[in-house]
Simulated scan of single mutants.
Amino acid sequence: MKPRIWVDFNNRDEQNCLCLSTNGSIEDLTKFSQVESGMVVTAHGDEIEVDVLLERDGSVWVGVMISEYRDTLAKNG
């Protein structure tokens, strides 16, 4: 199972990458013993999730989407 990071899917940069700069994202990132560019994690919100490739953009981590969105409500319902 991939590590999971909470994200705000409305918080994206100009390349459409997910910006992992919200409190929830930062809190989840700090739980990992090591965070590296190229690491694949599952980014999740309240209703959807997607696999992302972590990359560093200056002082902020971003998630490059590498899978289709998955509906987490259907999976849990």
Rank of each mutant, 00 (worst) to 15 (best):
R4Y: 02
N10L: 10
N10Q: 09
S37C: 05
T30V: 11
T22W: 04
N16Y: 10
D46A: 03
L54W: 05
Q34F: 11
G77V: 14
V41I: 09
D8H: 06
D46E: 06
C19H: 05
C17S: 04
F32S: 02
V52I: 14
N10P: 03
R70V: 09
S33N: 14
D46G: 05
V40C: 09
R12S: 03
N76M: 12
S21I: 04
L54G: 00
I66C: 09
D57G: 05
M65G: 00
K75D: 10
L53Q: 01
I66M: 07
L29C: 04
E68P: 01
F32I: 05
G24C: 12
L20E: 00
M39R: 08
R70C: 07
V60D: 13
D8W: 03
S33I: 09
S33Y: 14
M65A: 01
N16K: 14
G58S: 13
L20R: 00
G58P: 08
V64L: 11
P3A: 05
Y69F: 15
S33H: 15
D13P: 00
E68N: 10
E55L: 06
Q34I: 12
M39E: 12
V40S: 05
L20K: 01
F9L: 03
T22H: 06
E68T: 05
I5C: 03
T72C: 08
T22P: 10
R4E: 09
E68S: 08
C17N: 06
E14F: 08
E55I: 02
G24L: 12
P3I: 07
V7F: 00
G58Y: 14
T72E: 12
W6M: 12
Q15M: 10
G58C: 13
G45N: 10
K2M: 12
K75A: 13
C19P: 00
R12D: 01
Q15E: 13
G24M: 10
E68Q: 11
N10R: 06
N11M: 07
E47Q: 10
N23L: 14
D46L: 06
L18S: 01
I66L: 07
F32P: 00
D8I: 06
E55N: 06
G58A: 13
S59T: 15
V62L: 03
N10F: 07
S67A: 10
L53C: 04
G63R: 00
R70W: 08
V40G: 04
T30W: 14
W6G: 04
V52Q: 03
T42V: 13
V41W: 01
P3C: 06
S21K: 06
D28Q: 11
F9M: 03
D51Q: 11
C19L: 15
N16M: 10
D57K: 11
D8G: 08
R56D: 03
V62A: 01
G45W: 07
I5W: 05
T42G: 10
R12L: 08
N16T: 07
F32H: 07
E47L: 07
D57F: 15
L54A: 02
F9S: 02
